[in-house]
Design a protein around this nucleic acid. Structure first.
Length: 489
RNA sequence: GGCGCCAUCGUCUAGGGGCCUAGGACGCCGCCCUUUCAAGGCGGAGAUCGCGGGUUCGAAUCCCGCUGGCGCUACCA
């Protein structure tokens, strides 16, 4: 039997990093075992539906590199892959369960349900449905009331009053549950839509899903699911409950903790490869030391059994470090050039002419790749290559070394320009020339370099000076030197 | 209230009875390198393995209890 896993989010927004990690695990498992990974939309809650989140979900998956084999947008042999288009199947399953005596119509109003729940709570009893409609008499009465008010029924599962069901989970082992603590939960809502419990089971069965990986908040619901599988005569898939990802304060990861959606990470300049690596190592590890691991290696080694049980706090600093590793060590330079070009095109102010010179970027990449951790830092690091419109201030130019000595600074700048005229324009020769010039001027090399750095780049923090000057070219450097000189006087 | 899950450095984790005076990584601190910023190299601090009982010659590892954190207890997923 071929392994099939799925990611089945409800379209309520852009996927969350915490949530999408279960997709990543599902993807890895499918690829590891040579099966299929599919996307399905669980849009059965019309109240929470956010329509434009649907393309965002597929875009998030694609961006992260979680390519799926079947899905709402690409189809597949078991479609449709959107639950709102499969209503007849859930209704048929519910009908069948009613006919079998495993479910029943419940006509109770939500007002009554609330009252029952409140009463149970007041008496410190478990807040369960009181099963009024489970009995013919109660049901008949409730039905009369409901019809008078024009209400439709829900379908509830007729949970056995006693017994045990046992969840066998590859991550958690086996957990027995006493069925008596489970109430008669709703499977089909009065609007004809199923609840999660019914819908996912019917779909997974129809779509031949073999392994379900979901958050461990589902463990308490698992016995209900086991009961439905049993009543429907379905062999349950492997149910694996992965720990969740928490914010720094131990609370569920949310907006308060900073970036949470996949798009936010993309926009801040994280690389999908790095985020993939990072997420894959939360709750799963290869061994005691592997930190940088490719998708191919993940696929080669992934297993459910090595997923840990405890929840993890999202360590944003480590992700940033890892992103830096990808930029400076993992991504091949030509690919990096493309990423930088795209970033610059998008982020540079409109004054800087487009298109961005790819050749120039290719020269710049080696200089800055080891000093940026995020793509978003790239423009500020190299804008002076792409515009001659520098905006230094006199104070910045003089810096600490030349503060109060503008005349000396001007003289130094002039001398640099003079010696630059006939030096061979390579970074080594430029450096040699400036060092001996510093000597001649009786200045500390570092002080002179700083002055030149600001004059040529407009900033105090830059890529290596001489390499930058080489790339900039003699003419542009001379021009900037003279502009700077006239500014300090 | 009921039911359940979880528990190793601040964080992510390795570990599955002796290899553990607990290893790696991020972060932090110091030194080195150095034209700024990074990167890199070296070193350091940091966990009585939540607590208490067992079992065992021996426990971070197995068992029980407790505590703590979290989750579920919806016509949400």
């Amino acid at each position: 039997m071929t392994v099939r896993t799925r990611y089945a989010p409800s379209p309520t927004g852009v996927p969350h990093v915490g949530n999408i990690r279960t997709a990543l695990f599902s993807y890895l498992l499918a690829r590891r075992l040579g099966g299929q990974f599919i996307l399905r939309l669980e849009d059965t809650d019309r109240a929470r539906l956010v329509p434009d989140s649907i393309p965002k979900i597929s875009e998030s998956l694609q961006w992260l590199g979680l390519d799926y084999d079947e899905g709402p947008d690409i189809g597949g042999p078991y479609g449709p892959y959107t639950q709102s288009e499969r209503l007849d199947q859930y209704q048929a399953a519910a009908r069948r369960l009613i006919e079998q005596g495993d479910a029943y119509d419940c006509w109770c109003s939500s007002e009554r349900l609330d009252a029952v729940r409140a009463e149970h709570q007041r008496l410190k009893q478990p807040p369960q449905y009181d099963r009024r409609c489970r009995e013919d008499a109660g049901q008949a009465q409730a039905k009369r009331e409901a019809e008078a008010e024009g209400r439709s029924p829900v379908v509830r599962f007729k949970t056995p009053r006693e017994g045990t069901v046992t969840l066998e989970d590859p991550i958690h082992g086996s957990t027995p549950f006493d069925v008596a603590t489970i109430d008669d939960f709703v499977m089909l809502k009065s609007d004809g839509f199923p609840t999660y419990h019914l819908a996912y089971i019917v779909d997974d069965d129809a779509m031949k899903i073999t392994h379900v990986i979901r958050g461990d908040e589902w463990i308490p619901s698992a016995p209900r699911h086991l009961l439905i599988y049993g009543a429907l005569g379905i062999e349950p898939p492997v149910l694996a409950h992965a720990p969740r990802i928490l914010g720094p304060d131990g609370a569920k990861l949310s907006k308060r903790h900073g970036a949470t959606s996949v798009f936010e990470y993309r926009d801040e300049g994280y690389l999908p490869e790095a985020l993939f690596n990072f997420l894959g190592l939360i709750g799963w590890s290869l061994d005691d030391k592997t930190e940088i691991i490719s998708k191919a290696e993940f696929i080669e080694h992934f297993s459910l059994e090595r997923i840990v049980r405890n929840p993890a706090i999202f360590n944003a600093e480590k992700l940033q470090w890892m992103n830096g590793v990808y930029i400076r060590e993992v991504i091949p330079e030509p690919d990096l050039v493309t990423m930088f070009v795209d970033r610059l095109e998008a982020d540079f102010p409109p004054e800087i002419p487009r298109p961005i010179d790819r050749q120039l970027v290719a020269h710049v990449v080696p200089l800055i790749k080891e000093r940026v951790k995020l793509l978003s830092e790239v423009p500020a690091y190299c804008d002076f290559f792409f515009t001659d419109n520098l905006s230094w201030s006199k104070e910045e130019l003089l810096g600490k070394a030349y503060a109060g000595r503008p005349a000396d600074a001007k003289a130094a700048l002039g001398a640099v320009a003079t010696s630059a005229v006939d030096v061979t324009w390579t970074h080594d020769d430029i450096e040699a020339a400036l060092r001996s010039l510093a000597d001649k001027l009786g200045a500390k090399a570092g002080d002179l370099f700083s002055l030149v750095r600001v004059a040529v780049t407009g900033k105090r923090v830059t890529p290596p000076l001489f390499e930058s000057m080489e790339i900039l070219g003699r003419e542009r450097c001379l021009e900037r030197l003279s502009q700077a000189a006239s500014l300090v006087s």
